[in-house]
Design a protein around this nucleic acid. Structure first.
Lengths: 200, 200, 200, 200
DNA sequence: AATGAATGAGCCTTCATTCAT
DNA sequence: GATGAATGAAGGCTCATTCAT
């Protein structure tokens, strides 16, 4: 009877294991410093198996990235739709940002770090289109409030900068453990700051 | 059979050339994708000369980083000291941030990208101590205003997040040319947002 | 686009080929002058394959060394056990020494040359322990004869110096072809010299 | 007033310092592992100065070697001439061997280790001719005793093997501190062994 | 689907050596 | 004679990727 490392053709367990192992390693050592061998060890897969599921290391990196932003973005949008008031949108963005960050610290760090990487090109724009769609959804949520005169008419980039910019900055403090960061206070202050700037 | 490219024992010209060449390449190709050969070509130095001035590629990367933050941080502090009023501090931070970013786009991109890298360890904390000193200077500037009741008493991380967080976020849009970003507008809005949140 | 040169998962043929190629090169050019490329060419392995089997060039050097002394030492002990009389031990040591040297000239040169190298540290004392065991076995063979009053009671180092010291010295003459060395004569003389010094 | 590291055009102090520093490093790290930089540091000379005195690293290595064997060989011959009797020659060789080894341990180790190196070629046979001359002198000392029927007629290689072979072997034990080696005993035993083998 | 030995291009780094001062 | 920044050839080693099994 030959070896078998796992049983499950359909579940995609192996694929999922590899992604989790890769995320762990990328977070621990950095993407470039992580070798396929590292991922192999942690996932209990063979290097051949990794290449069976992902065309290349970059593809794997992109897959991890894509899985991360999809999770993050869809969750945020869901959350915003539940609190679809002018202030509620802002509150839910900030609130969700920190919540997701705390629940998915490794992913949060990875997404921040990889933002600049040349993944767009590799994934044939899966990532770019996810981002684009996210932006459009956000626009779709804010737009009615602006038209209704509840929020100021400003470019979306300003909205994002005032709402998520501080979150990212504070989030990095928290992730780096540079501070014993009081996320509750930050949440409150960032919301107030953005609300006072964006409300009509 | 070495050629000599010029002499300059004292000027440190060679060292400076290498740093400039490295910055250019790191920005153009990314740190990991840049080879010593790339830097050699662009700096007109030999690989041996590069290693004469920097112990390793990582050390060179750290030196570039350090030079960048020192320039950025000292400039910002200088600027703030010239506008040492409660609102002036905020205005000069935001204003300087964008000004420096526009004047030093390559460095700005490099500093953002490399933030997470393991340079701290290599430089024996030159970077960490530069950051620490910067933070302390900022605290030293804000503290009197807070004590005088002109600004709210909040952790410095909140101050930084509300002032520089949006700058970074918007700056990234600008650097990525994702938008035809109106920096003037962003400056105004970020200042107002932060001021309304931090003023007493 | 790798070529395959042949497969042999279990046989360890590749590993063995590399050791043989390395020994040849080390003997021909010297350890330091031998490049991995030299060994690669001669073994028909890829450089990657060499590093798959040996962690480093030093490790490879140590593996060659270890294989050599194991062969030499076990053969000598075997031979001595077959001639386990007071004089027989001495005769078989000297006889085997020269026989092995002639049959394994490259290895003999390599062992002599590398004796001082810092291999001990690398191999986590595989070499040191092989030597220790060899010494103990020798002691185990001589000891009964000494206790039985057939051989003089002297430190083992003296035994080795009087028996193998001349062999090494003469062996070096032979290996260096400094002389048209008459090994038969040397064998006879060395045996007599040692025997007359060590017998009771 | 420019720097001056030492004053002495004629004494050859600098050259001598470099040789001493080189010997120390070669003994400590091995010839190949020693860099010019190591020697530079220890000798307080500049790399340029080292190359002013020696054409190359190999030349320096050879110079150290040559200085060593000249010292060793001339001392041994001197000593033998003072005890120019059949047994006296053997006694003085063994006695001097150990005495010199103890007084010049670093040199002794270096000479043993470098024996195989390709110095001959570099030094235009300075070493080879020193060796040749040494051998001839030895032959010149033993020859009369052989012709006078006081010592057996055997090839010089046998003489050397029986007298110096054991010395080297035991000397190595001593140098490696493998044993708390009793040199007095070894001297006596080696002399007796050689004498009984070589005397008529 | 899985395995892991094998591949080899490529890169960082070392270090003996040179030479303008 | 001395200096040390500069040179660049050379080589050890890594690691993403392949493929026979």
């Amino acid at each position: 009877m030959p070896k078998k490392k796992g049983t499950h053709s359909k579940t995609g367990q192996r694929r999922s294991d590899i992604i989790q192992a890769a995320l762990f390693c990328f977070d621990e050592y950095g993407f470039n410093e992580t070798t396929i061998e590292d991922i192999r060890k942690r996932s209990n897969a063979s290097s051949g198996s990794i290449y069976h599921h992902f065309k290349s290391k970059d593809q794997l990196g992109a897959a991890v990235y894509l899985e991360g932003i999809k999770h993050y973005q869809s969750g945020m949008l869901e959350n915003m739709e539940k609190h679809n008031t002018p202030k509620g949108l802002i509150e839910s963005m900030v609130g969700y940002y920190f919540q997701w960050m705390k629940d998915n610290a490794a992913w949060a760090r990875y997404l921040m770090q990889m933002r600049q990487e040349a993944f767009m090109e590799i994934t044939e724009n899966s990532i770019a289109s996810a981002n684009k769609q996210f932006i459009e959804c956000l626009a779709g949520l804010f737009s009615p409030k602006i038209k209704a005169g509840k929020l100021r008419k400003l470019p979306l980039e300003i909205y994002l900068s005032l709402i998520l910019g501080p979150c990212e900055c504070y989030g990095r403090f928290w992730l780096d453990k540079v501070t014993d960061a009081d996320i509750r206070l930050a949440t409150k202050e960032i919301i107030e700051s953005a609300w006072s700037a964006l409300k009509m």
